[in-house]
Simulated assay, not measured.
Amino acid sequence: MTDHLQPENWPAWATESVEIVEANPMWNLQAQEEIRQLRELLKQLNIHKFEHIGSTSIPGLPAKPIIDLMGEVQSWEDMDLIADQLNPVGWNYVPPELDGRDYRRFWVRVKDGKRAVHLHLMRPGEERWDRQIHFRDVLRQRPDLVEAYAALKAKLADENKDDREAYTAAKTDFILQVLDEGN
């Protein structure tokens, strides 16, 4: 039996290098289309609340070319039913023991062998839901922060090209500072 917790058994998209590209004005339209499809696929499971988050949701911000979406799910018990809907159209479930984040259930949509969309499913009342939206909304109003974040992301992507987790962790101080300023 294959041990999926071992990195040598992960698919290639799970260990892609960090690549930051110029902002694409089409990202928001792509996100809205993904949300439309998700609503259709998951409507019988009463999953209809979605948000476009992350760097691709902030106009003018260079980013990894991966659309980040959040969706609200009532129960973790629905993952098998969700998988029945999402797996056939290119979504891959990353189990919590691999993801390492108990507050969400994580899905990755792969297109042409690369990550194209992330779906962060969270239960109602999850604090990180509000924090993701708050961070996005503060940056949408503050071009100075977008500029600073773009410079930081470029530097960190260069320093952590082959370590996505280290890249993400290294952005934490900036994100917390923005969240504190925005309150």
Score class of each variant (00 low, 15 high):
Leu98Gly: 08
Tyr103Asn: 02
Leu81Lys: 11
Tyr103Met: 00
Ile67Asn: 06
Arg101Val: 09
Gly90Tyr: 11
Asn92Ala: 13
Val89Glu: 10
Pro65Gly: 09
Pro95Phe: 00
Ile82Pro: 08
Leu86Ser: 05
Pro95Ile: 00
Arg104Met: 06
Asp84Ile: 13
Gln74Val: 12
Ile82Phe: 06
Asp68His: 07
Pro65Asn: 15
Asp68Ile: 04
Arg104Ala: 05
Val94Gly: 13
Arg101Lys: 14
Leu69Met: 12
Ile82His: 07
Val94Thr: 05
Leu98Ile: 13
Tyr103Leu: 01
Lys64Ala: 10
Gln74Pro: 04
Gly100Val: 08
Arg104Leu: 10
Arg104His: 02
Val73Thr: 07
Ala83Gln: 07
Asn87Tyr: 03
Pro96Ser: 02
Asp84Val: 15
Tyr93Thr: 01
Pro88Arg: 01
Asp80Thr: 04
Asn92Ser: 13
Lys64Ser: 10
Leu69Lys: 05
Ala83Val: 06
Asp78Asn: 06
Ala83Cys: 06
Leu98Ser: 07
Glu97Trp: 09
Pro95Ala: 01
Trp76Arg: 03
Asn92Glu: 14
Ser75Leu: 09
Ser75His: 14
Val73Ile: 15
Glu97Val: 11
Ala83Met: 06
Arg105Tyr: 00
Ala83Arg: 03
Pro65Ile: 15
Pro88Val: 05
Pro95Ser: 02
Pro65Met: 12
Ile67Arg: 00
Asp102Met: 02
Glu72Phe: 00
Trp76Ala: 09
Gly90Arg: 07
Gly71Ala: 14
Val73Gly: 04
Val89Pro: 04
Asp99His: 08
Val94Ala: 08
Asp80Val: 02
Trp91Glu: 08
Arg104Lys: 08
Pro88Gly: 05
Asp68Val: 04
Glu77Gln: 13
Asn87Met: 13
Glu72Leu: 05
Gly71Asn: 08
Leu98Cys: 06
Arg101Met: 06
Arg104Gly: 03
Lys64Leu: 11
Arg101Phe: 01
Asn87Cys: 11
Pro88Lys: 00
Asp102Ile: 03
Ile66Ala: 08
Leu86Gly: 02
Pro96Asn: 06
Asp99Tyr: 01
Trp76Val: 08
Glu97Asn: 11
Gly100Cys: 09
Glu77Ser: 09
Arg101Trp: 00
Gly90Leu: 12
Asn92Gln: 14
Asp102Lys: 08
Asp102Gln: 11
Pro65Phe: 15
Asp102Tyr: 00
